[in-house]
């Protein structure tokens, strides 16, 4: 199965990269865009067909390594 892990900075954490992107978009004339935030997408294949097992494994590795929950939140999509 394939897992997609989306990692985002929590809303209360300042995101200077998002701000830089927003400012570039404004320079391109996109005046209506605001609140740009940058996150990460981590994709992986998991050699299992047991969706509960896959969800558990991905949640565990995300908490252990992929996201730092002091500053980040995450969501998981299994395909």
């Amino acid at each position: 199965m394939k897992a997609l892990v989306y990692v985002r900075l929590k809303s209360e954490v300042l995101d200077p990269q998002g701000q830089a992107i927003e400012s570039a978009l404004k320079n391109l004339g996109q005046k209506k865009i605001s609140n740009v935030r940058q996150g990460k997408l981590i994709e992986m294949d998991i050699n299992s067909h047991n969706i509960d097992e896959v969800k558990k494994t991905v949640d565990q590795v995300t908490k252990t390594l992929l996201a730092n929950t002091v500053i980040e939140e995450y969501s998981i999509e299994i395909k």
């Binding site: 954490v13 300042l14 200077p16 990269q17 830089a20 730092n68 002091v70 500053i71």
Partner: peptide, 17 residues
């Protein structure tokens, strides 16, 4: 040391990037 939780908090990118 923050990533291994021996110290609290985290070091983000400099606000100037």
């Amino acid at each position: 040391l923050t990533e291994v939780n021996l110290l609290p908090g985290v070091l983000l990118k400099n606000n100037s990037l």
